[in-house]
């Protein structure tokens, strides 16, 4: 009986770690999602206003997307280190 209790407690701990890791990953993806949406929205607006500057805008947009995505990757790393 005691073995079952210990087993259940360990399972609870593992489940809590997995769910909190998933929660952290989800939270970490929200901020960059908003950031990328804002960044691309403004870039599309800039390209529509000034099509001849599209190359320059797309350069900064692409780098901006990659930098913003680094935040989500940090969340992913926290997820793989503490969870699953």
């Amino acid at each position: 009986m005691e073995a079952f209790t210990i087993l259940a407690q360990e399972a609870d701990k593992a489940a809590a770690a997995a769910s909190s890791a998933g929660f952290a990953y989800g939270l970490a993806a929200i901020g960059p999602g908003i950031g990328i949406g804002y960044l691309v929205g403004k870039s599309v607006e800039a390209m529509a206003r000034q099509p001849e500057a599209a190359g320059m805008v797309r350069t900064t947009m692409f780098l901006g997307i990659a930098f913003t995505e680094a935040l989500a990757l940090i969340g992913f790393v926290v997820f793989i280190l503490i969870g699953l």
């Binding site: 960059p32 999602g33 990328i36 949406g37 691309v40 929205g41 870039s43 599309v44 997307i65 995505e69 989500a72």
Partner: peptide, 10 residues
């Protein structure tokens, strides 16, 4: 581009 970027991110 907007849709591709956001869905691409996901």
């Amino acid at each position: 581009v907007m849709a591709a970027t956001l869905f691409g991110y996901l």
